[in-house]
Design a protein around this nucleic acid. Structure first.
Lengths: 113, 113
DNA sequence: TTGACACATTCCGATATCGGAATATGATGC
DNA sequence: GCATCATATTCCGATATCGGAATGTGTCAA
């Protein structure tokens, strides 16, 4: 058996840096494939293939306009990731809070000088 | 070229469901390898191999105690993921807020009965 | 020292991925 | 209809992954 399919869930789809870049560039709004190819330094077939994967897990949706295809972000699909992360988030934000407290303490000690 | 190495970054390490399960079981606290093998239904070598991957990206740390090895969660390493997600979070949390408002409305309408 | 226990590593076959190149589909305009 | 533009799909070789089985390493206890 190899690694889980990239189309099986959001976690696998997002594992690839190129796909994260595509999602990042789509935060600016709906874009045609050609526009994405221009923005990033990727070949057109690669962009199309990555868009297919993102589409299959629902992270992007597609709308045809003439001979162009406009892809749009579907950020709601990132929710499973966020929910999984939330379990751990508290733990490290606690630590960061403690670090903040500590830094604040240092700052207060430094001020009088 | 194949998919990016699983040891290269947190996103790839987390793409595998088995590794997410291991992290999940470690939220209860430090655990020995055998304990993880018992908790989940995985072979000992598989658990060890996954722990190695998680260790290489810093998501877990290890401490030797006699002939056992206790693994602990390092949740701070999930921060890059959280920061990446944060860019998208606002967009869908707005929608969720509206759903929350709607549910609250329904609840208020139900109470009088 | 020897054996048992806890864990890590290596070898293996099957499989899925990635990028590049070539090609196919499908809409537009003349 | 035919050429062109925009995008999707297929074929390919190289490579990295996964799980299972077997084996290696290191610690404790008698």
């Amino acid at each position: 058996m190899a690694r889980s399919s990239t189309t099986s869930d959001v976690f696998n789809a997002i594992a690839e840096a190129s796909r994260r870049e595509i999602l990042d560039t789509l935060t600016a709004g709906e874009k045609a494939v050609g526009a994405i190819v221009n923005d990033l330094s990727m070949s057109q077939p690669q962009v199309s293939k990555h868009l297919r994967v993102l589409s299959e897990v629902g992270l992007v949706s597609c709308r045809a306009e003439g001979r162009r295809r406009l892809y749009r972000l579907e950020p709601a699909r990132l929710r499973p990731m966020h929910e999984w992360l939330a379990k751990y988030e508290q733990e490290w934000s606690d630590r960061l809070d403690r670090i903040d407290d500590y830094l604040g303490e240092l700052r207060r000690q430094g001020e009088p000088q």
